[in-house]
Each structure stands twice: as C-alpha cells, then as structure tokens.
Design a protein around this nucleic acid. Structure first.
Lengths: 220, 220
DNA sequence: TACACTATGCTGCACAATGCAGTAATGTCA
DNA sequence: TGACATTACTGCATTGTGCAGCATAGTGTA
C-alpha cells in the first residue's frame, strides 16, 4: 500500500481519454456498469467508439483511483454495481478540459481497398463502396431519427440539448459528405475500363488540378 | 512444429486489415522494414493510420505465415531487412478483396469535449475547436501539396495515379466539411451566454428541425 | 406449463495495437 | 571534431478488442 502523498502523484497515471469520457458520464448521474456501457455506446459512439468490454473496465479503474465510488444493488437474486463520481473525480475532470485535445483519427477500410483496387476487380471495388454506404446510411438514419425524437422532448438530459444538437450537426454533415463522395466515386469508376494501370488519365488530371487548387470535383 | 496441412488451415489466423495493408504495399515492390513504415505512414495515414511499431511487426508476421520472404542487406557495418511478397501472399491478398469491408471508425476527441462542454468554460471549448482546426489544416494543406506534386509527375507509382486521386478527393472533401463545421460551431457558441443548461433554445430548435428533415444548417 | 429466446449484468483470457525508451550506425553542417 | 538528424530497428509495459462463458430475469408461444 502506498502513502496518500505518493498516491496523489500517481493520480494522473492510467487516465486515458476513455476514462475521462466515462467520468464525464458519471458527472451527469450515477449509473450501473451495464447502463454505462449502453449509454456510452449509444451517445458516444460517433465521437469516441469504444468496446463494451472497455466500458465495463473503466469505472473499476476510476474507483481504484478514487475518482468514483461503487456499491452493489440487489434486485432479487441478482446484483449490479452502481458507480458514482467523487469530488476528486470532478476535480480531475476539470483539469482535463485544459489539456491538449488529441488529433482526430479516421479509419475507413473501404478507402484502403480503393487505394489497392488494382489487384482486385471492379466488382470488388463497387461492393466495398456499397458496404461503406450501407454502414453510413445506417448511422445517418439513426441520427436523423434521434433529432426527431429531441423535437418531441425525448432528450435524456434536456438541459444539454444545445450540445447534442451541435454535435449531431457534425455527424450529419460528415455522413452527407461521405454519401456524396460514394456516388461520385461510383460514377468515376464506372468509366474505367479496368481498375489497373490507368494512371493520369485526362479526367484524373482535371480532378488533380482542381484538388491542387483546393477545389472539389463534387457537385454540391 | 505443425504439419503443412494443419498450417494451411491456420493461415488466415492473425491476419488483420493492417496485415493486408502491408501485404498490398509489398505487392507493389520489395521494401525494407524502414521504408515500409515511412511509406505506410505517408500514403496510408488517412485511410488506415497505424503506429510505426506495428508497421515494423507486420512484415515479420507475414514471413512467419509464408506470405513474404526476407533477406538481410548490408551497407557497411549496418544491415537492414528487405521483404518481398510470395505467390502465397498474392493469393491471400486476392482472397481478401472478397471479404466484408469493415465499417468506418471516426474518433474525434474535440467532439467528446463538445458533448461535455458544460463542465468547462467557453474558452476551453473554443481552444479545443482551435486544436481540431490546427490538426485538420495541417493534413488538408499536405494533401493539396501532394496533388500539386502529382501534376508535376511526382507520383511514386504513376500507373496508380487514378486511385490516389480518387482517394484524395475523399480526404479533401472531408477536411473542407470539418473546417466549415468548425466555423459554424464557433459562431453558434459565440452566441451562448454560457456552456451550461441552455437546453432547447429557439436557435437549437431551428437546427434540430433542419436535422430531423435531413437538412443541414451549414451555408454552402 | 414447459420451452425457447431475449435482455440484463457481468468476468476471464488471448491477442491486437500503441507509446516510449533504448541501441547503434551513418550522414550533415558549423 | 562535435552536435544533431536520419536510418534502422527491438523490448516492454500498458491500452483496447473480441469472444466465450456464466448466471438471472422477463416475455412470448405451443
């Protein structure tokens, strides 16, 4: 066991952005582990997608660090862990806001497949774009429906609606951009006789010239 | 040691998307480990951002699986590992193209901070947006310059220019969208008297209504 | 009423991936 | 000749994922 003085020096240890995300949820109200995983997957998915497994582990770490406390609740023969933020936790959260924001990270396997499309068929490439579209459409539709529910007063924390809506604006704009790009890409690829060795075609040169002047070939 | 027959059943084991990304690079030409990390970080960063550490490990795994072979090259007192794809590697790559494309994954810490901006100051929120803008601007500028270099014949694999340029169209479109959203968000937040408890203001309701109809409040 | 199926509510384990420190040789400029 | 950047990696601790497993509670249905 360590002295308190030593402990406080180690406090920041092990606190990842994911830890702060969970801590921020606990700042809203106490949650059970299960609720935390569900809530984090629904509301944070688009800003900070993390696995259920991690979301079960984070609150335990917060308790170890003294940023949360926990107790077991019983309903019948079954128990669940309830987590609650501590004053130290609130302090840690406040300090976090003044640290440097991590750069964004965008992983799109469909783009990787596009980059290496020349050792596959056009069909494979089209299918990959279809799959990307499918995934984006799903998220897009979900967030549009969420906004409709907010209009009916469906926000779980009504006083925080202004934040959620500004956040949703980002999502919808990104999704629309990706959907428009997919259509554009399909039209381009449809003109290709093959995926291989086309190089700098006249059409590609036109696009390159636009991009080099920081313009986009996408209509609207 | 396992029999060949058993080995081949285990072949797919341990092959991640990152493994296929490196294998696809090896399909273009043989590289040294160091070149592979540099090339992957420069060209794949925006589709599949992976650490240098991983990019050193992947080719070793490919050799173990029989998808690549390696030899040491000496220049003076110093050696480096050269990796080359095998026929089995090419086969594995071909099979990969017919598998399901992974859904995209977008991590933006600045959005997480926006979502929880109500336990911080407006200044913190503005700073977070500035930091996001800084990161995006950097990437945006880099890719515009890359396109200019392609016009001068600077593509390392000229016959693949059509793929790189279609890929770059995606990047530039996304970057422009994010930059426009940041400006929009700044204007909105500037109108807020505080970050807390504003809830469904008339302005927020207008935006929510637009989003629920799958429209965007962003001009242009 | 028995049965299946879904939702709740987790934990353990193997493995994927990151970040950082460390090591060592070569090239470059002042 | 000395400092510093670049080339060329490896080891290790820690973060994060995916899957399997386990147990209870509720819900529909034949």
């Amino acid at each position: 066991m360590l002295h308190n003085a030593v402990m406080s020096n180690l406090m920041a240890q092990g606190m990842t952005t994911s830890s702060y995300a969970v801590l921020a949820l606990l700042d809203l109200k106490p949650w059970t582990g299960y609720e935390l995983t569900q809530q984090a997957q629904r509301s944070l998915r688009y800003a900070w997608p993390k696995s259920e497994r991690l979301l079960y582990s984070e609150p335990k770490k917060l308790v170890e660090l003294g940023y949360a406390k926990t107790h077991k609740e019983l309903s019948g023969n079954r128990s669940r862990n309830v987590y609650e933020i501590t004053p130290e936790g609130r302090e840690a959260l406040a300090k976090w806001t003044s640290t440097r924001t991590q750069p964004p990270r965008i992983e799109v396997e469909a783009l990787l497949r596009l980059l290496f499309a020349d050792h596959g068929s056009s069909e494979d490439l089209f299918r990959s774009l279809d799959e990307l579209e499918e995934d984006i459409n799903e998220h897009h539709q979900a967030i549009v429906e969420l906004m409709a529910s907010y209009l009916g007063g469906g926000h779980p924390f009504p006083q925080r609606t202004h934040l959620s809506v500004l956040f949703a604006t980002f999502q919808i704009d990104i999704f629309k951009t990706i959907e428009r790009w997919i259509e554009f890409a399909r039209d381009e690829i449809a003109e290709w006789p093959t995926t291989q060795d086309l190089g700098m075609t006249p059409r590609t040169e036109t696009i390159t010239r636009l991009l080099a002047n920081d313009q986009t070939p996408l209509n609207k």
